[in-house]
Write a protein that binds this DNA or RNA. Structure first.
Lengths: 204, 204
DNA sequence: TTCTAAAATTGAGTCAATTCTGTTTTTGTG
DNA sequence: CACAAAAACAGAATTGACTCAATTTTAGAA
């Protein structure tokens, strides 16, 4: 079952993603026509739709790879957090934000986010929701870790706090990608300011 | 300048919005074709595009009316807030959420939110951002009011707290409209649980 | 090797949003 | 009232995502 057919399949997947990533970057999401992606990937339009349900799912595959890297990078912070709550959150948030813009442009993020709310039941829509949950869970784990280290009060609801931190950060990130002129440094400063309230609430 | 032309213009605006609202409700956003909206409004397709830049802006006009009503309803709570922080926030959040679903279906919200991130510079995109800001400002005003009443510590950053509350609620609302089976009662309970942490932080 | 069923590919065709160009209506002026 | 410029309208043409029926390729059995 891992003969020619499977190899060709993997290869076509790769070619489509590579072609799409390049075109999304150069021409933007709307500017990248399926026909052009198909031509560049050396497959037909129909084949692309055999591999992905719609144009959004192609972008989705790219975004998912990126977010998985982000999750990976975040693990390090959870395993070895800075020795105070504010810095710990700031470090994790910093990793999420900086990493997120490594391969994906703001425009690609805008599209990805839009698609995930527009078509929540499409493959990418579901994947995106799962990724959000994974990020929330990672923040919850960090908080639990800090509780274990005695840096956060034991009676704090780590789940609820994790959700608050994630939801706030995510919303700030959405507003950030909506404005092309918005700067990362200002975004991070704003989130720090907001988190200060939460940090105060967790003081032992 | 307020002769026939202006009257016809207002009338056509109204007819287009009414036709669109009815069709969005009955057939869903995607299901409502511009051609059908045009026919029902007794104008041509071209005319619709003379009044609105794109299909999303038509939905945007409807959503904006709704959110303005929500803002209006919220004013009452700010003017006369319940006598403890948790209830005050819960009441305001309750008004936002319940009111938001009065005329607009989850599907319409999904589309509206998607469009506002996809096309942040379109008329509706900008209007939506402004409405979000107005809601945040209203929450900030409520918190400032509670500070005035001695129910919230004076050294709390009302702006940052308002943003936290709004961003968290908004993100929860987004997830809520993405799942057709999600219930309002559960959404409100989840937000209450999250806000409990913030309420604790504000205790005098 | 040959053959058949299953899987995959192809690209022309469909559908609906948006654009474009020529026509009609309104306005203000002489 | 007649008329020219400006504004608005109409609907045919364009565009690009997505579908589908016909064809080609692969797997594996005889």
């Amino acid at each position: 079952m891992s003969g020619l057919r499977a190899r060709q399949k993997a290869d076509r997947h790769r070619r489509i993603i590579e072609a799409a990533a390049e075109l999304f970057r150069d021409a933007g999401y709307e500017g990248a026509k399926i026909e052009t992606i198909a031509a560049q990937a050396e497959v037909s339009v129909g084949t692309i739709y055999n591999y992905y349900q719609n144009k959004g799912d192609i972008l989705g595959a790219i975004v998912s790879m990126e977010v998985n890297e982000v999750l990976n990078a975040g693990q390090g912070v959870v395993a070895n957090p800075p020795a105070n709550v504010g810095d710990a959150l700031d470090t994790l948030v910093g990793i999420y934000i900086e990493h997120s813009l490594h391969y994906l442009s703001k425009e690609m993020w805008r599209q990805a986010m839009a698609i995930s709310t527009q078509l929540p039941d499409s493959p990418f829509g579901q994947a995106y929701t799962a990724l959000d949950r994974a990020l929330t869970e990672q923040i919850r784990a960090l908080i639990a870790r800090l509780q274990g280290l005695g840096l956060v009060r034991r009676d704090i609801d780590a789940q609820a706090l994790g959700e608050l931190v994630f939801n706030n950060m995510n919303m700030m990130f959405i507003e950030f990608v909506k404005r092309d002129e918005a700067r990362v440094a200002e975004l991070r400063a704003a989130i720090r300011r907001q988190n200060r309230i939460l940090v105060a609430a967790t003081a032992v």
